[in-house]
């Protein structure tokens, strides 16, 4: 039997890698992928807790997170395409128009 802590650690490490990627990379697509990494880290923790607490609510939450991630990916990629059409770049630092 694998202890619960191992799963929680794994979720935390994946989340931290996602945070690092979001902060350190400037390519917008990779920043988006990092957000998906963070969501997956949380999902692993939720499913593990749901299994070890013998309650299905965690898995329901994962279900909703997957739905929200799909919506977020659709909107975000549409925004990326619109930005690329206007600016011709994917570099996040180039998109500082609203900065004063």
């Amino acid at each position: 039997m694998v202890p619960l802590y191992w799963y929680l650690w794994l979720g935390g490490v994946v989340f931290a890698i996602g945070v690092f990627g979001f902060l350190a990379r400037r390519n917008i697509i990779i920043m988006f992928l990092s957000i998906e990494l963070m969501l997956n880290g949380v999902n692993i923790s939720l499913v593990a807790l749901s299994h070890y607490m013998q309650d299905l609510r965690g898995q329901i939450l994962v279900f909703f997170i997957i739905a929200v991630a799909a919506a977020e990916a659709a909107i975000g990629l549409a925004i990326i395409i619109a930005m690329f059409r206007n600016r011709d770049t994917l570099h996040a630092d180039e998109m500082a128009e609203m900065k004063g």
Partner: peptide
């Protein structure tokens, strides 16, 4: 939410 996402993605792109 998914409906809003569909409409938003079509409108944005």
């Amino acid at each position: 939410l998914l409906l809003v996402a569909i409409v938003g993605a079509v409108f944005l792109s």
